Amino acid sequence: MTAPVVEIVEGDSPIILAAPHAGTWVPEPIRARLSPVGQALTDTDWHVDRLYRDLLPGATTVTARFHRYVIDANRDPGGQSLYPGQNTTGLVPEVDFDNQPIWRAGEAPDADEIQARVDRFHAPYHAALAAQIERVRARHGLALLYDCHSIRSQVPFLFDGLLPVFNIGTDDGRTCAPAIQSAATDICEHAAGFSMVVNGRFRGGWTTRHYGRPDAGVHAIQMELAQRAYLTSERPPFAFDPTVAAPLQTVLRDLLRALEAAAQELKP
């Protein structure tokens, strides 16, 4: 079986929606080496591409179709940790978010294979994303990269307690103009029935930190959503629930419109 490494839909908005962890494609030779835990693909950002679909007409979308167990498109390709001193998973994870091995004994990839996966998967995804950022910036004078993520609400290996629904990450304000962070914060703070935090456990991954250069006209923000806000259950089969998701999508639509308006105000 083959699948595209990345899917791109070009739009005319200054907003780019990136989804590095929505993909579930694992090439069969790699899948065969995963443990039963790994083959469950539990750590997918389940249906996050569907969740955002059509919420902002004109938004560009860049979606990785390979799974994060193949290689994590939101990690430094050199392997540097995003959160030194904290539990996390690597460029090619060895364990899942519950600290369980995802590879069969002796089947984890070595350094040469990891580099080959960088070349085959990670690099093409980011080449596509970088090209869209440049295209959008050339059109508007700036680009706003919104990195779409989701995760189970309770993952003790990674964080304590129940995760807020909205987790805004800007690397402590470094990756976007203050007006961008304020626009996102204002919408989420006033979203009835939802909890939120800014630069909490998730301050923005490699994508946000790598591309977010406000002084150069590229603003980046990560949104990590708790999956209880749109799934039927945070257990297999991780089904999307349109009824549960509808209130969240209303807030996300307002959020994206607010970010687009803020971006328009920042145009040079």
Results as ranks from 00 to 15, higher is better:
128 A>R: 01
24 T>H: 11
77 P>D: 04
150 S>Y: 08
172 D>E: 07
228 R>F: 09
232 T>D: 14
234 E>G: 01
250 T>C: 10
130 A>I: 01
219 H>M: 06
169 G>K: 12
127 A>E: 05
127 A>R: 13
52 Y>H: 14
197 V>S: 04
168 I>T: 12
258 A>C: 06
45 D>L: 06
81 S>C: 07
165 V>L: 10
126 H>K: 13
96 D>K: 06
145 L>S: 06
43 D>M: 07
238 F>W: 04
113 E>Y: 14
120 R>K: 09
216 A>T: 13
45 D>Q: 10
89 T>Y: 04
129 L>R: 15
126 H>S: 12
132 Q>M: 05
177 A>Y: 00
107 E>S: 08
148 C>L: 07
68 R>W: 05
65 R>G: 10
258 A>T: 08
166 F>E: 05
4 P>Q: 01
175 T>A: 07
155 V>H: 07
129 L>W: 08
216 A>K: 15
70 V>M: 08
32 A>D: 15
203 R>G: 10
170 T>P: 05
11 G>R: 13
201 R>A: 14
251 V>T: 14
113 E>L: 03
20 P>S: 14
267 K>R: 15
128 A>V: 05
178 P>M: 02
122 H>V: 07
182 S>M: 12
5 V>S: 04
70 V>E: 02
93 P>L: 04
174 R>Q: 03
256 L>I: 10
80 Q>G: 02
75 R>Q: 11
57 P>C: 08
213 R>I: 05
223 M>C: 11
266 L>K: 15
172 D>M: 00
160 D>S: 15
92 V>I: 02
64 A>M: 07
152 R>D: 03
233 S>V: 08
22 A>N: 11
88 T>W: 00
233 S>I: 07
238 F>Q: 02
109 P>Q: 05
262 A>L: 02
49 D>H: 11
55 L>G: 13
8 I>R: 14
143 A>W: 08
250 T>F: 10
227 Q>A: 01
252 L>D: 04
136 V>I: 13
52 Y>W: 15
14 P>I: 09
183 A>C: 06
98 D>N: 13
207 T>Y: 03
74 N>K: 11
246 A>Y: 04
85 G>M: 15
184 A>R: 13
38 G>L: 05
250 T>S: 04
71 I>F: 03
174 R>V: 08
